[in-house]
Design a protein around this nucleic acid. Structure first.
Lengths: 158, 158
DNA sequence: TAGCTGACTTTCTTCAAGAAAGCTAGACCC
DNA sequence: GGGTCTAGCTTTCTTGAAGAAAGTCAGCTA
């Protein structure tokens, strides 16, 4: 557990993972969204890549220096940890505004779940593939989570 | 979620909570077990009490200056977060030794669960009351988790 | 009354976070 | 084809927190 916390226990690491799950894997996008210092973000990304939770992937136009960070299977498996934090926060921390709420939705049955790793509506196991997060501060509609390497499947290969 | 991570995201906070769940709520015991600096432990404990996850409770002999930290209902509800970290770590991080493994057990049916907040054997919801952790480095047998205020129930009253 | 112990608090040093600027390589523009 | 733009870092500097070690204090113990 201590070893797990070395990777996941850092506040920024979890927030970076959150952004990647939201499909927000580009350096600038994360920096702007999280308000984190460049050097810290660079360090956290390198650590998460080093720990095998993220991989780098060139995106958009041809071989330019533009990279996007995407989840590996190992990173995707951290979803219950993030869900558990979201559910605990929703239950116990007062939201600073109506917009600040965030929900975990199972796309299979559409239910809002109160479990970190299974749907309390239908019991199905939650994965990044069948889960959406709904954050009012972000978009009006729920966001399907990013899975390991969107588009082309690389997944556990790395 | 960011607010939740302000409290739970700190590596030491999670480890302190782990110790309290293990029934190890005394200052010296935690310091010895975690190898954390006194000043840092004192700060973390104060923060967790301030956030309402722990309360202080005198223990043993009469009104001496000896305190023990015990969970509140709010702190107890953080169990799924810790479970999720344990399960992820067990799945994805190599254990440095045979002894380093840790399991989450449901005492109701005795099954080892692979879900953070329900028993994968019987489906029952996991609470501190019906959950044991089994850490080989600690004891040979699984340890029933500490619940909100052992002995006298205070719980949500604070 | 002279320790001893548990639970801190203080002090000091070192390391990491935060802010701000600089660097680089390809894209775009005219 | 020279200038500008932009994404994705890297460097530098300052400030704040972590870590180590010693000090404090109240009550028990002998």
């Amino acid at each position: 557990m201590a070893r797990g916390l070395d990777i996941l226990g850092d506040p920024w690491s979890m927030l970076v993972l959150r952004e990647v799950f939201f499909g927000n894997g580009r350096f600038e996008a994360m920096r702007d969204r999280l308000g984190v210092a460049d050097s810290v973000l660079a360090g956290r990304l390198a650590a998460l890549v080093g720990s095998g939770l993220l991989t780098r992937q060139p995106y958009g136009d041809s071989g330019r220096s533009r990279q996007e960070y995407v989840l590996t299977a190992k990173g995707e498996d951290a979803l219950p940890v993030l869900n558990a934090v979201v559910l605990w926060s929703e239950k116990h921390l007062p939201a600073p505004s109506e917009q600040a709420h965030m929900f975990v939705l199972h796309r299979g049955c559409g239910a809002r779940t109160s479990s970190a790793d299974s749907c309390t509506g239908c019991g199905e196991r939650l994965t990044a593939e069948n889960t959406s997060w709904h954050s009012l501060t972000r978009t009006a509609d729920p966001v399907p989570l990013a899975t390991a390497c969107p588009g082309k499947q690389i997944g556990t290969a790395a």
